[in-house]
């Protein structure tokens, strides 16, 4: 989407909407321990924030994470997930058994923090994949 739909009303609406969208995504990620939500939904919301900017403002949007950025995000997310699993293997537990990590006093709290870490990984993965999909679906054949 090289040009975007940007009229001035869309542009102003996008500028006022995006901070709340990103804040809501972070709330969904962090509040996943206490209510509905979690990594997948937060990642989809963050990806939609970037996609919204791309739809309204076109190729050089302000939140312009492109194809390579999306790939880096997706692979980093999956690697964060794997790294947390391997770290618990390193401290003498099973694979993905966060209770043994030395990040909190009690094993239950260490588990809660480990869940937060892997949810962050899931968030980055899903966000990157949504950006990749939108970029490839709309940019193909627009070479002039």
């Amino acid at each position: 989407m090289r040009k975007g739909f940007g009229s001035i009303i869309l542009d102003v609406g996008f500028r006022h909407l995006t901070p709340f969208l990103i804040l809501y995504a972070v709330y969904v990620l962090v509040h996943g321990h206490y209510g509905p939500g979690g990594g997948f939904q937060a990642g989809a919301l963050l990806g939609l924030a970037v996609v919204l900017g791309r739809v309204v403002q076109g190729q050089d949007a302000e939140l312009g994470i492109g194809l390579s950025g999306g790939l880096v995000l997706a692979c980093t997310g999956a690697l964060i997930f794997l790294a947390i699993g391997l770290a618990s293997l390193l401290w003498g537990g099973n694979f993905l058994d966060y209770g043994v990590l030395p990040i909190a006093s009690a094993p239950a709290e260490a588990r809660a923090l480990g869940i937060l870490g892997i949810e962050a990984g899931v968030t980055m993965g899903v966000m990157g994949v949504i950006i990749i999909m939108f970029d490839l679906l709309t940019r193909r054949g627009e070479r002039e």
Binding site: G38, A74, F81, V129
Partner: peptide, 30 residues
């Protein structure tokens, strides 16, 4: 797990190997 949302605890702790496979499938699809 010290997590009040039971869905989150099951999804990300008891069944986290399942979630790992899910994320890797999504990234490989991308």
């Amino acid at each position: 797990t010290a997590t009040q949302n039971m869905v989150c605890a099951v999804l990300a702790d008891y069944r986290s190997f399942d979630t790992l496979g899910e994320v890797i499938v999504i990234v490989i699809a991308g």
